[in-house]
Design a protein around this nucleic acid. Sequence first.
DNA 1: TTGACAGGACACCATATAGTGTCATATTAT
DNA 2: ATAATATGACACTATATGGTGTCCTGTCAA
Lengths: 111, 111
Amino acid sequence: MNKKSETRDVYTAVADPTRRKLLQLLAEADELPLHKLTAQFQMGRTAVSKHLAILKDADLVKERKAGRETRFRLNAEPLKEIEDWVSYYTKFWNERAELLRRLLEEEQNET
Amino acid sequence: MNKKSETRDVYTAVADPTRRKLLQLLAEADELPLHKLTAQFQMGRTAVSKHLAILKDADLVKERKAGRETRFRLNAEPLKEIEDWVSYYTKFWNERAELLRRLLEEEQNET
DNA sequence: TTGACAGGACACCATATAGTGTCATATTAT
DNA sequence: ATAATATGACACTATATGGTGTCCTGTCAA
């Protein structure tokens, strides 16, 4: 489904509503196997598995084998790229937000 | 290229690097006609025009006829949805950021 | 008034995407 | 030992996506 299994574009990974819901489920539950995740959707297991593969390519999830199941865990850090990107545009709708954004930037430079 | 020309999903609109570059060009220049925008890319005018149509469907750009040219202007406000979405995940990589996020939320509730 | 320029509207095309179903295999429970 | 479960690996399909080229029309300048 993707030519290079290197790090896939995080924007594309997040563009699909199914994948965003997957991220949310994993954010709430810490670690979940494929069949539990599949139960939350209308589509079949194979489709969910492919979505997870895309998230994995974007490094947004980690997977780990546990017996006969494969458990998935959220790795939100790549979303930082999106946050950085979108924060540039906040100034166009909110001057106040721009101020806080710069504070946040300073904060992160310290760390 | 899209079935419903009502408001298109902003995540999808922003998933493409060409469209992100378009947003950036418009952010810097306030208002630009199609041919000026096209000059910044390798692809032809038709392709750029289609990307702009997608951005317009997501309400991320406004267009206006000016003589023989069609000028485009950024409307960043729909990006708020992405900012809101991504801010939920900041707590997973940065506790400090989470604090500032809540401050920002309060700030926006006041307005 | 005659070009040249800007762009809309199509028709067309290759590839990517988001699904499906089936089969094989490892693991767990009875 | 056997059956059920969980998943990987394929093969396949319809539609969406991101491009192209061509033709036509409206506008501006010489």
